[in-house]
């Protein structure tokens, strides 16, 4: 029973990290039709920022900025020429991700580095270690901030309008280019924050992002495009399923089980958990 309960914080914190990662992906994917494979490298950039600063409190905003600016540069320099060609963006951004990984290898060396966890995060209450609690707290803060941004600010409401219908939003006078830039900035920044969170549960290496990017995309598929609620629920679901599948079977089968579950879920809801209702065909 304790072993069973011990999996709970592990699953929840994996879910929390996936949530932070998938928030950015679901909006860039839903709003701009961009499949950003380099998103994983923004996680890695955030983690290395934490490694360089060696200070959790400073690292969070710094990682958000570093990853956000990287996302902004990527969007302005390359991705904006690819809107409406999702499969091409996938290949393009994969090229970018290759370059960034190799860059990290050259800058920080190929072996993994360790970021020492701050003293105030050691220990825990009952089965909940503080570091995993902190990660969950980060995810909750991130989700609430994004939700407030989307519903309470003018820019956020414009973002929602672009997600729902780009042409109509543009004809109503919304500067869709600016909204796209901002979405990319925030989404990439959140990936950076996820990277800082990951330093609390494991070592940092150039390939850090590749371990999470596939799962994060599954979250987007299961949650529905551009859906905040969908990303949150699907991230939690997949995080828990992942940790319990590892617990019940063995680690090598867990990913197969998760993939099978997602495909099974798509049989019931082919568009994911939540769907943007529209009359547009294909």
């Amino acid at each position: 029973m304790t072993a069973f309960l011990n999996q709970l914080p592990i699953g929840l914190s994996i879910g929390a990290v996936l949530m932070l990662i998938a928030l950015g992906l679901t909006f860039t994917f839903g709003q701009m039709g961009v499949i950003n494979m380099a998103h994983g490298e923004f996680i890695m950039a955030g983690a290395y920022t934490a490694f360089l600063l060696q200070d959790m409190v400073l690292a969070l905003p710094a990682a958000f900025l570093v990853a956000g600016v990287m996302g902004l540069i990527l969007e302005r320099s390359a991705i904006r020429h690819f809107y409406g060609r999702p499969l091409d963006t996938l290949l393009l951004t994969w090229g970018v991700s290759l370059v960034l990984q190799q860059l990290a290898r050259d800058l920080f060396g190929a072996p993994n580095v360790q970021v020492p966890a701050p003293a105030w995060l050691s220990g825990g209450v009952g089965i909940l270690p503080y570091n995993r609690l902190f990660i969950m707290g980060l995810a909750v803060a991130g989700v609430v901030a994004v939700w407030l941004y989307l519903t309470r600010t003018g820019l956020g409401r414009r973002t929602q309008a672009v997600v729902q219908n780009r042409q109509l939003a543009a004809t109503s006078g919304i500067d869709t280019g600016r909204v796209d830039m901002l979405t990319f900035f925030i989404g990439s920044g959140l990936a950076g924050v996820a990277g800082v969170a990951l330093t609390l549960i494991g070592p940092v290496g150039p390939a850090l992002g590749t371990y999470y990017i596939v799962d994060a995309f599954l979250v987007v598929v299961a949650g529905g495009l551009g859906q905040l609620r969908g990303a949150v629920l699907a991230a939690l679901g997949l995080g828990l399923l992942n940790s319990y599948a590892e617990f019940w079977s063995d680690a090598s089968l867990a990913k197969v089980i998760v993939l099978a579950a997602v495909i099974a879920f798509l049989q019931v809801r082919p568009q994911g958990l939540f769907v943007l209702r529209s009359r547009v065909l294909t």
Partner: peptide, 19 residues
């Protein structure tokens, strides 16, 4: 279809390697 399919096949490749 489209990107969804691409992502599912990629997840298949990732799962296969771990298996």
């Amino acid at each position: 279809r489209g990107a969804y399919f691409a992502i599912l096949t990629q997840a298949l490749a990732a799962a296969m390697v771990i298996l």
